Amino acid sequence: MKPLRWLAMTVLLALAACHRSEPQAASPAPHASAAVTPVTKDAGRFEPPAESSMPADDFGKQILLGRQIFNDTSHYAQAYVGNALTCENCHLDAGRLANSAPMWGAYPMYPAYRAKTHRVNTFAERLQGCFQYSMNGKAPPLGDDVLVALEAYAYWMSQHESIGVAPPGHGYPKLPKPAQAPDYARGAAVFKRDCALCHGDNGQGQQTAGRTVFPPLWGPQSFNWGAGMERLDNAVGFIKANMPLGRGDMLTDQDAWDVAYFMNAHERPQDPRFRGSVAETRKAYHDTPYSLYGVTVNGKALGEGTAHP
């Protein structure tokens, strides 16, 4: 069984957001008519390997290091991290939880063509992107000890998965479009009700003894505008399946869309691919209704970015 602190760290990323004092959050619309789409957990389909099965050799040391990097990224991969997040924030239970982009569902799917890069990427290149965007840092060089250890950890968990076949529970669930367009004020109310307890009224998370226990959801310590969680369809799938932590599938579909919209309607660090203007960067990388980059919400144009921490 994994140490109890893993469960505490798993807590991170209840992707929903709102500042309790923001005037736009007043008079939220009621939750009526919001449908609930069950999310298949597939909990019995995959059993993560027990720690006792980790090899007691040099390869096992790499697997262990990969798990440590996953759970305490800023400590074990400090040179490549630029915010207060860890890998586990977006891939819960140390990358083992179904419907939370688990590593056993990702490793067997690479190499793969990715529309984001317009080329075939290896798994190591995919990990590089996580550091550059989700961690708002810089990509470790190919062959770096950090990437090798993370690959070893993912490989160890994925040995019984089929190559090139997306298993149930991989990635984040895809929800149907909501009955009503996502709304900032309704999302603010959902955040205040279900998310602020962990992530704070201002969405900046909580720390204990200098370590992030609940992650910031926007602002300079969060993921940047190039991260996959910036897309509403990704954020809503994660929220619906996993949040509030330990009570996934509790929110209605409408609630999940609204709170994902609210979270992503706040400023965060600039997209590293910035092309000199928000308009040009949106045209090149964010030209989708699922992105709020370059969109004006409540009179504020998003995408200017925050200062790098």
Rank of each mutant, 00 (worst) to 15 (best):
K174L: 14
L13G: 14
R186S: 12
M263Q: 13
A188N: 12
E230T: 14
Q24K: 08
W218G: 07
K174T: 15
P28H: 07
F274D: 10
A56C: 02
V295P: 02
A94N: 11
A17D: 02
G237C: 07
K116G: 00
G303E: 05
G219S: 06
E280L: 15
L245K: 10
P216C: 07
V259D: 01
V81R: 05
P215V: 14
S100Y: 01
W218P: 02
A84M: 06
F70S: 01
L7Y: 15
W104V: 03
M1S: 14
P23N: 08
E280F: 02
S277T: 15
E88A: 13
L175N: 05
P215R: 13
T288V: 10
P102L: 09
D255F: 01
Q78P: 07
F70P: 03
I163M: 11
T306K: 14
L4I: 11
Y290Q: 15
Q159I: 06
A154N: 08
L64F: 07
A152V: 09
G95I: 04
W218S: 09
K300M: 13
A241Y: 05
F70A: 00
V297D: 04
E51W: 10
F59I: 08
F274A: 06
P38Q: 12
G248N: 06
V259G: 06
D145W: 00
K61W: 03
A34P: 05
D287H: 08
A152M: 08
R247Y: 04
M135L: 00
S222N: 08
F70N: 01
S74V: 14
T306L: 15
W156N: 11
